[in-house]
Design a protein around this nucleic acid. Sequence first.
DNA 1: CATGTCCGTTTGTTAGGACATACTCCGATT
DNA 2: AATCGGAGTATGTCCTAACAAACGGACATG
Lengths: 246, 246
Amino acid sequence: MANQLRLSIDRSSPVPLYHQVVQGIEAAIHTGLLEPGSRLENEIDLAAQLNLSRPTMRKAMDELVRSGLLVRKRGVGTQVVSSQVRRPLELSSLYDDLTNNGSKPTTEVLTFAHIEADPATREALHLAAGAKVYHFTRLRKVGGKPLALMENWVRDDITHIDEDLLKTQGLYGILRSGGVNFRLATQRIGAMVANDYQAPLLETEPGSALVTMERTAVDDTGRNVETGHHVYRGDSYSFEMTLVQR
Amino acid sequence: MANQLRLSIDRSSPVPLYHQVVQGIEAAIHTGLLEPGSRLENEIDLAAQLNLSRPTMRKAMDELVRSGLLVRKRGVGTQVVSSQVRRPLELSSLYDDLTNNGSKPTTEVLTFAHIEADPATREALHLAAGAKVYHFTRLRKVGGKPLALMENWVRDDITHIDEDLLKTQGLYGILRSGGVNFRLATQRIGAMVANDYQAPLLETEPGSALVTMERTAVDDTGRNVETGHHVYRGDSYSFEMTLVQR
DNA sequence: CATGTCCGTTTGTTAGGACATACTCCGATT
DNA sequence: AATCGGAGTATGTCCTAACAAACGGACATG
């Protein structure tokens, strides 16, 4: 076929071969070298061309199928779905999203305390009675405009947290520096109208629409590290995501 | 170890072996046989106990790791994360969610038309000028209480759709019957306040909070099949999801 | 002409083996 | 006593090999 996937595989690289293939094909799709709808050569030929075994080639394609870039059909072949697919939903923080996006968010710490966890927090973080947590509320602005009002509860047996740290870094960045490897989070997104406390902080009117998000994050040791309740201005924030059928 | 995963593998079943293992371990976790935080035996021993090869065992565990039920650490072992993890976000429709949940949703069709696509719809569905689409608005109730107001645009070259069909089936069910295999969807979730049109239909007050959802769904041939704009009562609906770090 | 059957192609599943790499722990060395 | 290094263990990566199942088109048959 015309599909000349001129990828180069570097066997001396520490990057696994299958991942080099993933990156190569992703790049080919995003640069338009592989057009949406076009068919790839079959797994065996592709593997042969790159001097890889079929399982390795297949593992690479598995990832691309899972992320929604490719579609396979038995007896037919493998197609490129679309070049405009975003990564499926991953665990990231608002701060990460904004900085990746080129914006420069600023953070005001409204309250900060190191207190005994209330029962609801103990439940969410699986803590024993009497355990202490960091509790703080922050206001995040982008370009001087308030965007989010965030209230969080964090275990205190991970790393030290203080007000100054929160002003300059995102919470997830702090926790990652403290050795936390996030694995998963459950979150719930809904809506509410701004009350008299939220409205002035977000520089909007009471009664305007807010997006709410509650999240609890778990690290790779199974600890529930953090739980939070955030509200975002409905006129300037929404959650965008790609769902993939398994 | 004490971990007696007494799974039984049926080699004559059409269900792939690795998937039988996935189901078995999922069941063991949900029934509490495998407790959160407990360590599994190593891959090789588990494979030997079930008379499977290591790659097969590993493929099963791969899926469980991806779905967030297990955590692996090189040189250490594999642990159960938590029993209360939901499936990561999958492509499903509101109707599916409600019926799976045991509720009995009813649907009122407010408007129904087979019209030429407007430019925004053509853009969303990648249609040529002059192409026609089904356009309809529906009101979904559960237990007599309105929950969602849904407006959709659907390609007309897939399957015939009419008002009666929409009253008795979910849109995704209709499309699946028409041979559509959904692959992915991009969606955006936000918030707004109810206007004078929406409020009476949803039996709420103008100014109350609504969750908004815009979605475009793509099938396995790369066609953008459907796009829609839905609003949900904020006091009775929210999107819950599990994010997995890759 | 319509319909059913066979066959080649391509992905799906499974096996078994080999070596690499990261983590933990314990013993040896400084 | 503290620290460094190596053994043991577990997962991570990669390979060869084989058969199963689904799809689509060509072909044969009624």
